[in-house]
Nucleic acid binder design. Sequence first.
RNA 1: GCCCGGAUGGCGGAAUUGGUAGACGCGCAGGACUUAAAAUCCUGUGCCCGGUAACGGGCGUGCCGGUUCGAUGCCGGCUCCGGGUACCA
Length: 921
Amino acid sequence: MEYNFKEIEERQRQNLQKNNIYKVTEDKNKPKFYVLDMFPYPSGAGLHVGHPLGYIASDIYARYKRLKGYNVLHPMGFDAFGLPAEQYAVQTGQHPAVTTEINIKRYKEQLSKIGFSYDWSREIRTSDPKYYKWTQYVFLKMFHHWFNNKTQKAEPVETLIKEFEKNGNTKVDAACGDIPRFEAAVWNGMDEAEKDDVLMNYRLAYRSKTKVNWCPALGTVLANDEVKDGLSERGGHPVVQKDMMQWQLRVTAYAKRLLDGLDTLEWSDSLKEMQRNWIGRSEGAEMYFDIKDKDEKMLVFTTRPDTVFGATFMVLAPESELVDKITTAEKSEEVDEYVERAKNRTERERMADAENITGVFTGAYAINPFNGKEIPVWVADYVLAGYGTGAIMAVPAHDSRDYAFAKHFGIEIIPVVEGGNIEEASYDAKSGKMINSDFLNGLEVKDAVEKMINEIESRGLGKRKVNYRLRDAIFSRQRYWGEPFPIYYKDGRAIPLSEDELPLTLPDIDDYKPTESGEPPLGRAKNWLYKGKYKYELSTMPGFAGSSAYYLRYMDPHNDKALVSKEANEYWQDVDLYIGGTEHAVGHLIYSRFWNKFLFDLGYTVKAEPFKKLVNQGMIQGRSNFVYRIKNSNTYVSYNLRKKYDVTEIHVDVNIVHNDILDIEAFKKWRPENADAEFILEEDGKYRCGYAVEKMSKSKFNVVNPDDIIEQYGADTLRLYEMFLGPLEQSKPWDTNGIEGVFRFLNKFWRLFFDNEGNINLSDEEPTKEEQKIIHTLIKKVGEDIERFSFNTTVAAYMVCANDLAKIKCNKKEVLENFLIVLSPFAPHITEELWQLTGHKDSVINAKFPEFKEEYLKEDSIKYPVAFNGKTRFTVDLPADIKKEEIEKAVLEDERTKSRLEGKEIRKIIIVPGRMINIVI
RNA sequence: GCCCGGAUGGCGGAAUUGGUAGACGCGCAGGACUUAAAAUCCUGUGCCCGGUAACGGGCGUGCCGGUUCGAUGCCGGCUCCGGGUACCA
């Protein structure tokens, strides 16, 4: 019987669906295991062969865990809100809900063919009101909570109000905006609107002014990377920095917990490092500098207070309010001009160009509080308003950027730590002895920092400070296709809906562009008013809103009373394995950790961290092929002959090229202008193409669709081949040509079960020692490799096993059934089919992963490599259990050793029992 | 600029903790079966030199150096490629 993958896969797809085999419940008799994929945005282009890589890996792991006796939650859903659907709507007028629905349908079709073990009954879509009700719900909860620094927890705003009534904010230590101290009497004397304004400074979801890239022509806000040289990327319209009232989430409140939590996670070190850098904790001090002849002070944050005697200039960010206040009359024109220019550059632009050193002297001087020295104050755009205090003391001798600035403008450089050479470069290292620093002289940097901070505090100049680079998340988007805010406005005050009024559903509109007056698209919604009277918030939530708590919803996706029930959450707890791409390393993975910590504070989740283990799959790159057309002709010259001509390199569809040999007939049909193309072939009569590894994209004609692969080889082959390509976490090019290898393997595996007449033919005889050794080697290897996500070597192990068993014509039922079970996570269809053909009624999914028995792998003898001076020359077979001395004796008696030693003296013999022998001569 | 990865045959890759470099697969070459082809099976295949051959020798994991009896894996210094990014004081 032939391996008819089409029939088999179709039959088993239906069989498994029909029997609801992938459905999971909270089965308390089994340990739980939660395997999650980063859910996809359903784009109009459909899946290409790179998308399922992570899904296949997680599916293999999920199936493996099931075989190991776990109750595995392995759901899938869609991150269905997003910009592409909206842009398509702007162009075509089609409702994003309609196109999104079509795209999801296509995604599901494609996914279902690959044979994933998803429990589709748990599917979620972020754009479904039944789902986003809970996104809005969490937003409201954040609105109604503040963060108490003392308890390091979110607490209800009511408790804060009670405290205000009693003591004002004098005793409150909260994560909050810049708000002055007030007494209870002041609070109690405020009207509702004033109280609202105060509370906004404390809420975890709050409204405040932020700078945005505003494009008047497009009537919308742009992301940093949509702005190039002050112009919008789309259309090239001018972009200005504008203050806008925006909703924000007070992520910074959780900075410490987000940082500390990383230590508990099984994530890659590089990913944790990225998160640490993003959170950016730095220890130092905040200190005030008086301004000469002005009644102003300048507050700076520095991690190197020890270097204050080397501060030779100060820098203010162009946005700093202090700039206007201290700039002298004669400098004001120059400064204004500089500030104006800097303001209209995006933050990213300012940082991208590090070569251009710019800045202007304000004419003002700060006074060094430790030696009374006057220090010139500059304005420069390498200092950012959003970080620290927006002002620095510059120590060019010990900071490379300050150094470059000082060199450029000819500012004095005073070394205060021994070890560098200021003629050549700054000395940034945090070690060495202090010099030129009065009372710090002679101290090590570390000690000097401590002493200086104590000094700053005791002299009342400032205080010790831990600074975070993390910023609050801007939560408003001037878009249509997102979650509406459950907020309406009454007399200019933002009023939340009550929870029982959720969800606030997205209204239909007839055009998806911003309004003429520059309002977001929701401004077009007719009669969209709270109780027919009050205007709703017109912006919508960003992409990360819906993806921040989705993992919780899968635990209990149809619950209309809660985001997740206590029972379900207590059973499933957290995600044991999360697989996805590195592009979400800091965005999604910071925000979802933040949401989870907030929900944890409220008692809605039992785990402080949502994703215990995380694996980043690498990117699958495209492998493009090229043909070479001789210029001004319709003649194509083969790769190895191209240098003899003046040619143009042209991308050719990889689907009509096999092992870099062009299918000339297919090429002629590919495009009309190719019909009468001529070819200069190589000696073997073939047209050879060039190749390159690049991003997989339509324009490069290197996109490979999984549907086509499945059509030609089947889903099991696709799954195996995706894994066989290389290490999961590494980026690698897709090249369909190698796929024959795994396809042949599956054919070989299939044939093991049949005799020459095509009948199932398995023997109940006891397996031989050799057979047991072959299969137990595999059982051991598969278990170990899957546990360490080394799926490419697992596939190689399957191949070795099939080759070995075929060689000895093994048809023992026990052996082949074990093979079948350990292969099933990778190739679910073929194994399910054979499982049934061998007489089983239940699915192989519910089988037990065979236990590996060490006794079958025991070797009587070991093949020792014998090396001379580290170079292996030959091998000797020696009994496995002999001692070092016996090994040495045996090796020295070997003829081959003797012939090598002729006339030479042995200086040393290294013997590692069980491993190797090295003779040094 | 900074941070994080990576570089091994013609190609994808293996070598799990410093112990036989190149598993497995593709491709290629040769052979068996066949009227022929497909499929399947068998053999060979890192590079160079010598030999009809068995075999022998040298080189070899991006480059330069180091540690070690022994380095693809460790240390120092580079080059190139990929990804991320925020001039973060």
